[in-house]
């Protein structure tokens, strides 16, 4: 974690206030992304990964969403305090996002070319012809014939739409790319191509990335460091080597145990028991305690804080706190 800081998230809290209750989608988050670094954000569905990403771009839908506190410091400035006009200059330009669901992320009544061109013309001083050329180049880059820029989203397959979304996010050479499960809609070969593309960006353009996924295999392939999220909390945060060698948090350990690996036989596969808690009514104390194999009575009472167990390895578990589990 030595790279120059690009993004720093401090004490970020994002809640959704709905009629059924308040969802603490992101609760006291602290993260850092250095220049050229890739941070993996891993967690089950509903953990708050997309909310984190939207928070960074200051795009939380309000209402019901509300950023209660925290800072998102990008290149030394707090994005959450920026004026609307200033943050628009950053969105799609310095920070861009690949959205999770390519089926709904594209506007159905505009051609994909128009949609890519839009972001190019917003942020680059180019003529229309240049913008079209750039749009076609971007499509080619993600493996779609440039001539198809005049087609509408419904004329593309799901995987191609995903690649259009990627092309759109890359069109202005972002400094920080947030990729929200960019490969879930793709088959394995295309998935590999997309990951290669991202790695190339990272190597050639020194692009920083936040890779949101629930696939620890992808993390192993592209990430430098990883934050494991559970119910709005970052429960473990460290570099990739630490995480794979010595996972500390019981939830992380559970995640690793639930991955099938070729050299272990099937019945040793242990999915984490229990279900994600009701987001509007999280358990007291550590939100993971009802599912945790090591939980004690103390875990239901005391909310854990992040502990730096070894340099650069943060774990939010009472086991590592002064006093331990009892």
């Amino acid at each position: 974690m030595s790279a120059e800081k690009l993004l720093e998230i401090k004490d970020l809290c994002i809640h959704y206030i709905t009629e059924d209750g308040t969802v603490k989608a992101v609760d006291g988050m602290n993260l850092e992304v250095g220049k050229g670094e890739t941070l993996g954000l891993v967690g089950e569905t509903g953990a708050g990964k997309t909310t984190t990403a939207l928070g960074i771009m200051n795009l939380i839908p309000a209402p019901p969403g509300k950023i209660l506190q925290g800072e998102v410091i990008f290149e030394g400035e707090d994005l959450l305090k920026k004026k609307a006009a200033d943050i628009r200059k950053i969105r799609g330009n310095k920070i861009s996002m690949i959205f999770q669901d390519p089926m709904t992320a594209l506007n159905p009544v505009m051609t994909v070319g128009e949609q890519i061109m839009e972001v190019v013309q917003l942020h680059k001083k180019v003529s229309k012809a240049e913008a079209i050329k750039h749009t076609q180049d971007m499509l080619e880059l993600v493996g779609i014939p440039g001539a198809r820029w005049v087609d509408y989203p419904h004329q593309f397959s799901g995987g191609m739409k995903q690649r259009v979304v990627i092309a759109m996010a890359l069109a202005c050479d972002p400094t920080l790319l947030i990729a929200d499960e960019p490969t879930t809609a793709l088959d394995v070969t295309i998935q590999a191509q997309v990951l290669d593309l991202m790695k190339r960006l990272k190597d050639e353009l020194n692009t920083s990335m936040i890779m949101i996924t629930h696939d620890l295999g992808i993390v192993a392939e592209v990430c430098d460091k990883v934050a494991i999220m559970y119910a709005g909390n970052v429960v473990e945060y460290t570099n990739k080597e630490n995480l794979y060698r010595t996972p500390r948090h019981p939830y992380t350990v559970g995640l690793f145990n639930s991955i099938p690996s070729p050299d272990s036989d099937e019945d040793r596969l242990k999915p984490i028991e229990g279900l994600m808690p009701d987001p509007t009514n999280l358990p007291s104390g550590c939100p993971f305690h009802p599912r945790c194999p090591n939980a004690t009575e103390k875990c239901a009472r005391v909310i854990p804080t992040p502990i730096e167990v070894t340099p650069g390895h943060f774990v939010k578990c009472l086991e590592y706190a002064p006093g331990g589990l009892h």
Binding site: S96, F99, N107
Partner: peptide
């Protein structure tokens, strides 16, 4: 897709 448009700036 409206969110996408906003995310483009």
């Amino acid at each position: 897709y409206i969110r996408t448009a906003r995310a483009k700036g």
